[in-house]
Design a protein around this nucleic acid. Structure first.
Lengths: 229, 229
DNA sequence: GCAAAAGTGTTGGCACTACACCCATGA
DNA sequence: TCATGGGTGTAGTGCCAACACTTTTGC
């Protein structure tokens, strides 16, 4: 591996796919670009990696600056580096995806609302750069991951009903699930804590609320237990 | 995302974890470093990404230059970017892993042998940079991937016995498997083609040889079939 | 009383695990 | 004839999918 201080380098950015869940379903946060290229188009939040900055930190920084979120589940997704993906020059982007629960956090409250927005996954505008591809990869990752790691809870408020959880799984997996089988399976895992709370202000029978039992999950992981959701 | 031509950039490299299989088991290819830092230490093959070069191409180029292999299974692994991982400066490395069948290819035949070598995974020298961490991630990926994609065949010669295949799975998964169950399961998948060939020059009953049926596999994938090895 | 979603069990089939012996071959 | 690995079947268990009705509540 020769030293190559003398050579030109590709630029390096991070881009973040931030997923959120509201009553309508799964959403992704997009930012409207204020400058060329793709001025006025929607794009994933992201920006340049600074020298001396860890990639994860760069992603966290961009999420905070552009989306106003902190301390969310964040994981590296894939690195996109085709020379033509940015018309200006060769820009390599390390993509991350993040999950946020939209009911407990005020996301994008401190940002100019006209510049950022939540979009349903099945009703997206055209995106800048190769961001549609990045989003597709993120959706696939989420689909695969949710089946063997309890990341879905990152998208839900602290207390949630089993129906809510099921709708989330159905949104991520893009297929319907059987209610009875879903409930049996999730309850048997032993990572849900039943509470005494029920839904409020609903015009029907109120559903019992549950809480994700992180300690039980950590214990299972430590004992080498393999989850299968 | 502001333009930042004026800012300094981290350097960008690719590193490749090249796995191979021989009679003794799973091996990884390492290169002895000829210069500082870590001069004389073993490291993963890799090098700088050129401006205008796709990441995958850079990985393929390094594999060819340093290991003498072409046209192998190659997949992006993860991107490592901690500022301290290279003592010289901030170097971000996109890691790939690759699989090669050591019996049908002459790997590293055209390279100075003293500078490259295959090492058993359980008997490794200390590695330069954070390459031990990269290798660990690669092993984990292989372990996860081999269970639902037939990548194991990339490591085997065209014709192989079921025992050989089983030993490969055991090496990757790092646990013993039951012979009868393994054979039943793999044969039932319908992606193995039985041949009339048998092993040669063995001092025991010769095993029947099989061939990976890529077409059958592609057909299954197209029909949305989900493999579980 | 009606609309709307909550909640609840059983069955049949399939897949997985565990397990031990005979066979074919070459030396 | 012996050593070596090749090759084979069954039984028990648990998991999964399929499937429909009653309950609660607010309006």
């Amino acid at each position: 591996m020769p030293v190559s201080y003398e050579y030109e380098r590709p630029a390096l950015t991070v881009d973040c796919v931030l997923f959120g869940l509201d009553e309508e379903g799964l959403k992704v946060l997009l930012i409207r670009r204020g400058m060329e290229p793709y001025q006025g188009k929607w794009a994933l939040p992201g920006g340049f990696v600074r020298v001396g900055e860890a990639l994860r930190n760069a992603a966290e920084r961009e999420l905070e600056e552009e989306a106003g979120v902190k301390n969310v589940f964040l994981e590296q997704l894939y690195t996109f580096g085709d020379p033509g993906r940015d018309p200006r020059e060769h820009v390599v982007s390390v993509a991350y995806y993040a999950l946020v629960n939209l009911e407990d956090h005020d996301v994008v409250a401190d940002t100019d609302a006209s510049d950022a927005g939540w979009f349903a996954l099945d009703d997206l505008p055209g995106l800048a750069f190769d961001h549609e591809e990045i989003l597709e990869v993120a959706k696939e990752r989420l689909k695969g991951k949710i089946r063997y790691q309890p990341i879905g809870f990152e998208l839900l408020p602290e207390l949630f009903s089993l129906s809510r959880l099921q709708k989330l799984y159905e949104a991520v997996l893009e297929r319907p699930l059987d209610k009875r089988n879903f409930r049996k399976k999730l309850l048997k895992l032993g990572i849900l804590e039943e509470t005494d709370e029920v839904e409020k202000d609903v015009a029907r029978r109120a559903a019992r609320l549950y809480r994700f039992d992180r300690e039980a999950y950590d214990r299972m992981v430590k004992e080498g237990f393999e989850l299968q959701l």
